[in-house]
Amino acid sequence: MAEQLDLAGQESDGASDEVVLTPAELIDRLEQAWMNEKFAPELLESKSEIVECVIEQLDHMEENLKKASKGDLKVSIHRMETGRIRYVLSSYLRCRLGKIEKFFPHVLEKEKTRSDGEPSSLSPEEFAFAKEYMANTETYLKNVALKHMPPNLQKVDLLRSVPKPDLDSYVFLRVNERQENLLVEPETDEQRDYVIDLEEGSQHLIRYKTIAPLVASGAVQLI
């Protein structure tokens, strides 16, 4: 047990935010990232350090499991636990890939216009995937249809023809840190803008655009 905790410590030291996490906190973070990603309409910032830590930890546990004697109660419990964590992890990654496939031109455009200091919303692997997906789509469209078109119709602007993430969609959220004076835009023109306070622990239904920065900072959790 001690060994595992040390390992998690080392991993987090190596990560960019330099916070030492216990395995339980690590899993919590993964679950938060997972739920946010599931419910947010757009692709969120990549949490690659969490993903790497979890993968390393899972590999380590599975390595240990191979060595352990069969039929031990411990082994079956561990196996279940790793299975559960692996499910969350792959669901998280799959959800991100799904969004990349859906919004690839916009994701790549955002990546292109991103300034150096800003954190990337794609991990290196996801970036490679998005680029390849874009190239393949373009080739496919060209081979199947475009090259048979008259020359003036042979171009398709993917940025305009692929739907953008709908930031106006509604989300449910729970508040982790109290927020004051959040401006809510009205639904119709007759209504006026108004401000609300988000109290810690309260739950809300609101348009994603209003609270998108709070999701990124971790002040609210999508549910």
């Binding site: 969609s169 509604y170 989300v171 449910f172 809510v184 835009e185 009205p186 639904e187 119709t188 209504q191 609300i196 309260s202 739950q203 809300h204 239904l205 609101i206 348009r207 549910i223």
Partner: peptide
Amino acid sequence: QEAHARLDNLTLLEISTSGAFLT
């Protein structure tokens, strides 16, 4: 035609029963 609602004490399962449809 509200733009915001507060849903304290609603549990996750209750939200998910109608959440996806409602949003």
